[in-house]
Each structure stands twice: as C-alpha cells, then as structure tokens.
Amino acid sequence: MLPSVSSIFSRLRFRQLRLLIALGEQGSLIKAAEQVSISQPGATKALQEIETTLGAPLFVRTNRGLEANELGHCAIRYAKLIQTDLTHLREEMLGILQGHGGRLSIGVIMGAVPFMSDALTRLLEAHPDLSVEIVEDTSARLLSLLDQGRLDLAICRTSISRQPEQYDCIDVRDETLAVVANRNHPLAGSAQLELADLADSRWVVYSANMPMRLSLEHEFQQAGLRFPLHLLETTSAFTTLSLLQKNVDLVALLSTDVARFCTGFGMTCILPLSLKSRSEPYQLITRRGVSLSSISRLFMAQLTSAQDEH
C-alpha cells in the first residue's frame, strides 16, 4: 500500500526531487550525483529514501545503468512539475516585489484566442515585464487545470462540467460560427450557399459532444440532412488550417473571430453559408473561493472592457 499524502509530504525533500530529475536525464547514479553535486554514497542513500517515502521501487538496474520503471517515470514527471511550480513561484514573488504582478497563467479555447489576445496585448502594454503562460485546449481540460491550480483563470465553458457550481463565471462574448475552406475550394466563389451544398463534403470538426460540434449537428438536423460520416476530428486550430491548406475539398467549422483572422492573412476563405445556430458564449472562469492575484484582476478588467466594446 502506498503511503498517505501527509506521510509523503513530511518526508520528501527538494534535493531528492532534484536527484530524481537528474536520474531521469542521466540514467546513471554516478552522473546524476555529479549533476546535483552530491557524493555517490549520498545519491544511493537519497534514492533509497525516495523509494521508501513513496513506498515502491522506481528504477531497475540494467547493464546501461538505472532505468526508470512505470512508477519511476510517473515520479520523475511530477518532480519536474514541482520544479516548474517553484520556478513560477519565484517569478511571481519577484514580480510582486517589483510592482508588476509577476506571472499570469491563462487557459483559452480555440475560438476565444483572438478575443483573449486583444485583452492580453493591452495588459502587456501597461505591464511589459509580465510573464504569461497561455494554454489552448478544450474546456474539459482547461477546467481540470484550473481545479489543479495550474491556471489562474480560463476562457472556456462550464457547461461540460458535472460541478459547474465550483466556479465563478462571467459571460464575456457570444460565439458565432463560420464555415471556412481552402481559397481554391470549388465553392469558394459562390454568392450564396445552403448547407445541402456541403452535405457530401468532408468536414474538419471538434470531437463529439463539444459545443461547436453540437451546433453543427443541430444545423444538419434542422435542415433535414444526415450528418457527415467521414469526419476529421481535432481541437487544434493549427491542425485544422494545415488540413485545409493541403486539401482543397475540405471544409471546417470555426468561430467567426478565428475564421476572420485566418482569412485576413490569406490562409482560408469564409464560405457564404449562413448558420442559424449560435454556440454557447465564452465565459471568464475562476475557481470559486480562491483569491486572485492583482494581475489576474487586471486581466479580467481588460477582458470585460473588451466585452463592453463589442
């Protein structure tokens, strides 16, 4: 049986975590000991302490040295996360001491990236020394990172959560949708299209049960059309654009903001198809009951002012 969290927390030391990371990088106890500036006997003892603290062996000795087992890879990955968090802690404390708030971690779904970028640009103009981490992912993944404390705030949707009451939310922007394609798509020059004109096309779409995908399924249902069978599913804007660039027959559903951005740079064209559905609005989401840093509050103010402008 693995030890309790309180037991691990009371016994694990930061130098042991440094050794874990070094062992993962070097695969040798001698080289890892050199990297963290301790003696080989000291490294041997520290590794024994780590394995005792975690209640399981983490490495297998081979002819090539020490090789992490599955639990070892898990422990090394979390040791690196702790090291990263400590780095971020120092950055944020330094920023607070210097008066600019330090560091901000933002989660954002693809469709809200242009909207978020506008607000962040204004914030950086006022706080040029600010360090920012931006994580683009699905709402489910972003809420998970928010729950873990790895994001200060997220621009996504709580409707996918089983416990939406855990969050404080502000609707910040309605999402409208557009159908995009390669500029050389056979229907790119059309004056007006109906959904039936694209019913036999291969679509690049979000995964099932995601708000944008549900909106497209609703459009097909309302038009009395069968939803396309041979889909390309992705949550990546870059993957979507790359696929459209390589195949002139593909079409994709994007937020209007992203579609206009891509079309403005000549990467795609917006097909003249009027969609009746509206996806759920983007929400500015924070963890309920958690105190926000001053820089988080400043970013929220920028975002909500951008909402008022639109």
Rank of each mutant, 00 (worst) to 15 (best):
I270M: 15
L273K: 10
G95L: 06
R122L: 05
L17W: 04
F265E: 08
I76T: 06
L243W: 13
M267A: 12
L97T: 04
C156T: 15
S28G: 05
C262G: 01
R64S: 15
T240G: 06
A188C: 00
T87M: 07
E165S: 11
T138N: 05
H73L: 13
T235F: 10
L143H: 03
T87R: 14
I109N: 10
Y282W: 15
E51R: 08
G101K: 09
F9H: 03
A252P: 03
A112E: 10
Q307A: 09
C169G: 02
I285R: 03
V60M: 11
R61P: 00
T52P: 00
S201A: 15
A126F: 02
T239F: 03
S294N: 14
L271G: 04
Q222M: 13
P164Q: 04
T87D: 12
I8Q: 10
E67A: 13
R77L: 09
G289F: 02
L23W: 05
D118I: 13
T176S: 12
G27Y: 04
C74H: 12
S242H: 14
R64T: 13
F59Q: 07
L229K: 13
T158D: 05
S7H: 14
S4K: 07
D174R: 09
L145C: 03
L23R: 11
G289Y: 04
H310P: 00
I21Y: 01
C156P: 03
A199T: 11
N247C: 05
E217C: 04
E233I: 04
T52E: 15
I155C: 02
L124F: 06
W203L: 02
T235W: 00
E175K: 08
I8E: 09
S296I: 04
E125C: 09
T87P: 00
